[in-house]
Design a protein around this nucleic acid. Structure first.
Length: 749
DNA sequence: CATTCGCCGCGTAAA
DNA sequence: GCGGCGAATG
C-alpha cells in the first residue's frame, strides 16, 4: 500500500493528528482507534510531504516488538532506508544507546564507546560479589535484583540510606565504579547517562553562546556534538516513567516538535514505575495541544459497551461496528473442569472453521496457565504460552549453573554449598554433616562433589558432541529424581544448556572445560532466552497469556478466565491498585473483536480468592450478557432480602391490598431466607449519579457502594472515585413507595 | 547456635 | 493471611 492509499483510509481525527505541527501535541488514543496507523502515517507525512529527514526523527517505543513493527511498515514503503537512517527509531534504551555510541562524550563519564550492556541478573550477581568482598550488610539478598531496580531511583536522586537500614547505598557506589571499570552499562545507566550528557551539552552551548555571542546557527565544533532531532514521536506514552520523561525533556531541543500518543485507560504498568499522571504532566510541561482518536474499529458494540463500564468516569469510546453477540458468562466448578470445557469448546470452534490463532485465553496470574497447558496437551489442542523465563528463574538451571560454576572455579565455596544443600536437587545431607564436610572435603564421600572437582581435568581435551556427555558425567539423573513430576522437563532444560555449552566451545575452538569457564564468565549466560514453549508465530495455535501480555493484541474470540474476587480483581492494598485492576480488565475485554466469554469458579481452590461471580461481572450491564440463569444465586438472595424489607413495610403502613396466596408464599420465603430482618427498621438511601440519575443504595462497604437504578439495573461504584453523590436525606416509608415498585419490578423481570 | 518475634511482600514485566 | 528472612534472645 502506498502513501496516498494509506492517507485515504484515515478518518478525520486521524488526519488531524497526522497534519498537526504544534510544538507539542499529545494524542489521547482510545483503545483500537488506529494508533499505530496514525504514527506511521505521521512519519511518512513528515518525510514525504514535509521533507523531514528520517535521521532527524526520534521515534520512541517501549518494546522492541513495537519498534520492529514501525520500522517494518516504514521499510515496506521506503526500502532504501539503512540501519543508520533508523538509529533514532527504537526503544528508549536503544535510542539512548545509539546516542551514547555515536554522538555523546561517554568518556567523560567513565566509559568508552565500546561499552557492553550488563543485564539485571549479571548485575545482581556482581553486586553480591562486591558486597561479600567488602563485608557489607545487605538485607534480603534473595531479592537483590528487585532491590537494585527499586532502590536505584532513590540512589540517583541523591538519597544516601536504604529504607531497610543496610549498606545498599555503599554498594550502589561501588557497583557504579565496577561497571565503569568493566565498561558495562545497565539498562537504567543507558538512559541516565544519556540524559546527563544531553543536558550538559545544552549548558555548554548556552555558556558558549553567551561568551562569544554566537549567532544561533553558528557552526562550532565541540568535538562531541549532538544535533537535537527535529521531531520526537512517542508511542504508548502513558507507560513512561520519570527517568524516561527526563530523557525526553533532555532530548527535546528548542525547536524540536514533540508528538506523543497514548491512552490513559490502558495504564497497567504503574506498579513498575510509570507515573500515573504522565499523560497530563506531559501536557502541562510542554504546553501540548491535545487531540483525540475516539473511534474504535476493533470490537463489536456489545463488547465495547461492556468494557466501557471500566473506563475512568467521564471517558467514552465511540464504536464503529455492529452490535454483535452477547458476552457469555460461564460458571465452572474449578479450573480443571474449565480447562476441559475450554478444550472441547475450542475444538468445536475449530471444526466450525475458526483458526486456532484467532482464539486467545487471558488470565490474571501466570500460574493459571499450567492446568490449561496440561489439559490442552492431553486433548490435542495446539497452543502457545507467551512467557519468557530467564535462566535464574528456572530452578533446575539455576542449580545446574552453580554446579558448573564450582566445577570451573573450586574457590567458589559458596556455589558448592548452594549445590549440595539445595532442598530438591541437593544431596539431602544434614546441616551439620554438610558443614563439617565443606570444612574438610574428603574424596569418596560425596560423589557429586568429586565430579565437580574433576570436571576441568575430565574435559580438558574433549570438544564435546551433544551435551549428553556432560549430563552423564555428573550422573545428573541422581540429582533430578527420575520419579519426580518435574523430571522430564528438568532433564530437557539441562540437556539443552549442555548442548549450548558444546556449541559455544566448538565455535571458539576450545575444550569443553575452557569453553564452559568462559561461557560462565561471559554475559552469554544471561543473554539466553529460555522460552517455556517454543514460540511459533506462524503456527496456528491458541494463545494463552496474562492480561498484561495481551495489551496491543487483538483476537476474534477471547476467553478471560477466573473473574472471581481476589483474582480479577486481585486484592490490592490501595485504591490506585484497584483502579489499575479495572483498567487491566478493560484492556483484556477490548482485545476481542467478535466474541468474549468470561468465567468464574465456584471453587477457585486458591487462598484469598472467593468462590462465586466476582464483582466485576456484576458491573456489566445485564442486557449485554448471556449468563445462565441471568443472575447468580447470591445476588438473588441479596435482592430478595432488600425486597422483603421494603414490601413488608409498605404493606403494614399503607394497607396495600395483596392476595392471601401471595402473602403466604412471601412470608414462607421470608422465614426461610431472612428470618433476622423481620423487625428491622426500613431506611432507604438515595444516590445521585450524573449519568444514571437517582438510584437506591442496595449495599455498601468501606470501599464500594452498590446502587440500583431504574432502567439500568445494578451498578457498583468505588466510593473513592466520587462519581456518585450520596443524598443525605433518609426517606421514610411513604416516600419510598415508588422506589419499592421499581425494585420489585426489577427483581421479577 | 537454636528459637522466637516482627516485618516485608506476595503478583503483573520491559529494556 | 501466610511464608521467608533477619535481628534479637538465651
Amino acid at each position: 500500500m502506498n502513501y496516498e492509499e494509506q492517507w485515504n483510509r484515515l478518518n478525520e481525527y486521524q488526519k488531524a493528528a497526522v497534519l498537526d505541527e504544534s510544538p507539542a501535541c499529545i494524542v489521547n488514543a482510545n483503545v483500537g482507534s488506529g494508533k499505530t496507523t496514525v504514527l506511521i502515517a505521521k512519519i511518512l507525512y513528515l518525510h514525504m510531504k514535509k521533507q523531514v529527514s528520517i535521521r532527524d526523527m526520534a521515534v520512541l517505543t517501549f518494546t522492541n516488538k513495537a519498534a520492529g513493527e514501525i520500522k517494518e511498515r516504514l521499510l515496506a514503503i521506503e526500502p532504501k532506508l539503512t540501519e543508520e537512517d533508523l538509529a533514532g527509531f527504537g526503544t528508549f534504551h536503544s535510542v539512548a544507546m545509539n546516542y551514547l555510541r555515536t554522538r555523546l562524550d561517554v568518556e567523560s563519564m567513565g566509559w568508552t564507546k565500546q561499552f557492553l550492556i550488563i543485564e539485571p541478573d549479571e548485575e545482581a550477581e556482581l553486586a553480591l560479589r562486591l558486597s561479600k568482598e567488602q563485608n557489607w550488610k545487605i538485607k534480603y539478598k534473595n531479592r537483590l535484583k528487585k532491590r537494585l531496580e527499586q532502590e536505584y531511583t532513590a540512589f540517583r536522586q541523591g538519597k544516601t540510606k536504604s529504607r531497610y537500614q543496610d549498606d545498599m547505598f555503599l554498594l550502589f557506589e561501588a557497583l557504579q565504579e565496577e561497571k565503569k571499570r568493566q565498561n558495562k552499562m545497565s539498562f537504567s545507566d543507558l538512559i541516565e547517562v544519556c540524559t546527563k550528557l544531553l543536558n550538559r551539552e545544552d549548558e555548554q552551548k548556552e555558556s558558549t553562546c553567551a561568551d562569544d555571542s554566537l549567532p544561533k546557527n553558528g557552526e562550532t565544533d565541540y568535538g562531541h556534538r549532538s544535533e537535537k532531532p527535529e521531531w520526537i514521536i512517542v508511542d504508548e506514552v502513558q507507560d513512561s516513567d520519570k527517568q524516561q520523561m527526563e530523557f525526553l525533556t533532555a532530548l527535546k531541543g528548542e525547536h524540536t516538535r514533540l508528538f506523543a500518543v497514548g491512552d490513559p485507560n490502558q495504564l497497567i504498568y504503574s506498579w513498575r514505575g510509570s507515573v500515573e499522571t504522565m499523560f497530563y504532566s506531559l501536557k502541562h510541561q510542554f504546553d501540548a495541544k491535545e487531540l483525540s482518536l475516539p473511534v474504535n474499529y476493533r470490537s463489536s458494540r456489545t463488547i465495547l459497551e461492556a468494557a466501557g463500564r471500566f473506563l475512568q468516569y467521564g471517558n467514552t469510546v465511540a464504536g464503529s461496528r455492529e452490535e454483535g453477540m452477547p458476552i457469555k458468562v460461564q460458571n465452572h466448578y474449578d479450573a480443571f473442569q474449565e480447562a476441559q470445557y475450554l478444550a472441547q469448546k475450542i475444538k468445536e470452534l475449530h471444526l466450525g472453521g475458526m483458526e486456532y490463532g484467532e482464539i486467545a485465553i487471558f488470565y490474571r496470574l501466570q500460574s493459571q496457565s499450567e492446568i490449561l497447558e496440561k489439559v490442552f496437551e492431553r486433548e490435542g489442542v495446539p497452543y502457545t504460552v507467551s512467557l519468557k523465563k530467564t535462566l535464574r528463574e528456572i530452578p533446575v538451571l539455576d542449580w545446574f549453573v552453580k554446579v558448573l560454576t564450582f566445577a570451573c572455579n573450586q574457590k567458589d565455596r559458596y556455589a558448592a554449598e548452594a549445590v549440595l544443600s539445595h532442598p530438591f536437587y541437593g544431596e539431602g545431607m544434614e546441616k551439620k554433616r554438610l558443614k563439617s564436610f565443606l570444612a574438610e572435603p574428603k574424596e569418596g564421600e560425596v560423589d557429586l562433589y568429586d565430579r565437580m572437582k574433576g570436571f576441568q581435568e575430565a574435559f580438558s581435551s574433549e570438544t564435546g558432541k551433544d551435551g549428553m556427555e556432560i549430563y552423564s558425567y555428573f550422573s545428573l539423573d541422581a540429582s533430578l529424581h527420575p520419579n519426580a513430576a518435574s523430571y522430564e522437563e528438568d532433564r530437557k532444560l539441562v540437556l539443552d544448556l549442555c548442548k549450548r555449552l558444546v556449541i559455544y566451545s566448538q565455535e571458539d575452538q576450545k575444550s569443553l572445560a575452557k569453553g564452559t569457564a568462559q561461557f560462565l564468565r561471559s554475559s552469554a549466560l544471561y543473554g539466553i532466552q529460555i522460552l517455556k514453549e517454543e514460540e511459533n508465530p506462524g503456527k496456528d495455535q491458541v494463545r494463552l497469556m496474562s492480561l498484561h501480555a495481551s495489551k496491543g493484541l487483538e483476537f476474534t474470540v477471547v476467553f478471560i478466565i477466573g473473574v472471581n474476587d481476589g483474582l480479577i480483581p486481585l486484592t490490592g492494598r490501595s485504591f490506585e491498585q484497584e483502579e489499575e485492576e479495572r483498567r487491566l480488565f478493560f484492556v483484556g475485554m477490548t482485545r476481542a473483536r467478535e466474541q468474549l466469554e468470561l468465567s468464574y469458579y465456584t471453587n477457585p481452590g486458591q487462598p484469598r480468592v472467593n468462590g462465586g461471580p466476582g464483582r466485576y461481572l456484576n458491573m456489566l450491564p445485564k442486557h449485554l450478557l448471556d449468563w445462565e440463569g441471568s443472575q447468580a444465586p447470591e445476588e438473588k438472595m441479596a435482592n430478595l432480602k432488600q425486597l422483603r424489607k421494603a414490601v413488608r413495610r409498605e404493606q403494614e403502613k399503607s394497607g396495600y391490598a395483596q392476595s392471601k396466596a401471595e402473602a403466604a408464599t412471601e412470608s414462607v420465603a421470608a422465614e426461610k431466607i431472612a428470618p433476622a430482618i423481620a423487625g428491622e427498621e426500613l431506611t432507604v438511601r438515595k444516590v445521585r449519579h450524573p449519568k444514571y440519575g437517582i438510584g437506591i443504595l442496595v449495599d455498601e462497604n468501606e470501599m464500594t457502594a452498590e446502587v440500583e437504578f431504574e432502567g439500568y439495573g445494578r451498578k457498583e461504584f468505588l466510593k473513592a472515585f466520587g462519581e456518585i453523590e450520596m443524598l443525605q436525606r433518609k426517606i421514610r416509608e411513604k416516600k419510598c413507595r415508588t422506589q419499592i415498585f421499581i425494585l420489585w419490578r426489577h427483581f421479577f423481570y
